[in-house]
């Protein structure tokens, strides 16, 4: 099953490589990874998505917790949560396609953030499926480049991951 694991860790050099190293060392797999400092500059928030049986996920969370720099972690998929990913996508946009792309972007509630006479750069946020659907929808129109941020997530309601 796919899981979103969200980690609060010390914002120190080397901490990220320990998390990533753990995955290859123990033969787990990382599908996506997003990391940045939090409102408390001594802490980073790392969100990763991974796939595995319950047993594997249990080991992953235990092994992650053992890393000295990991302060806290939560498996967001255990409760209701919000999941978002940002995509920047560059599309060939000429002639009639320009209007077609614009319409599709509007349907997906994206934004065109850069324009040249032949290219649109589109920004889109949503869960992974929505981003996939957009790529599919514009697929015939010439995708030049896709950049995705990796999943970020947060629990719904009162639940917070903090110290």
């Amino acid at each position: 099953m796919r899981r979103i694991i969200s980690i609060l860790m010390e914002n120190e050099p080397g901490a990220l490589s320990r998390v990533v190293g753990l995955f290859s060392q123990r033969n787990y797999n990382i599908e996506s990874l997003a990391v940045a400092p939090t409102e408390d500059p001594t802490l980073s928030r790392l969100t990763l998505t991974t796939e595995g049986s319950d047993k594997v996920i249990e080991q992953i969370t235990k092994q992650l917790n053992k890393l000295i720099e990991v302060v806290k972690l939560v498996d967001l998929t255990e409760g209701s949560h919000v999941e978002r990913e940002l995509m920047l996508i560059k599309l060939r946009a000429t002639g009639a396609q320009r209007a077609e792309i614009k319409r599709t972007v509007d349907i997906f509630r994206g934004q065109i953030v850069d324009v040249t006479s032949t290219v649109y750069t589109v920004q889109l946020t949503g869960d992974g499926e929505k981003l996939d659907a957009f790529i599919q929808a514009v697929g015939t129109m010439g995708v030049l480049e896709v950049v995705r941020s990796g999943v970020s997530g947060i629990a719904r309601g009162e639940k917070v991951l903090s110290l």
Partner: peptide
């Protein structure tokens, strides 16, 4: 890294 409990510089 893979063979220590922790390491630091």
């Amino acid at each position: 890294r893979p063979i220590v409990k922790h390491n630091m510089t």
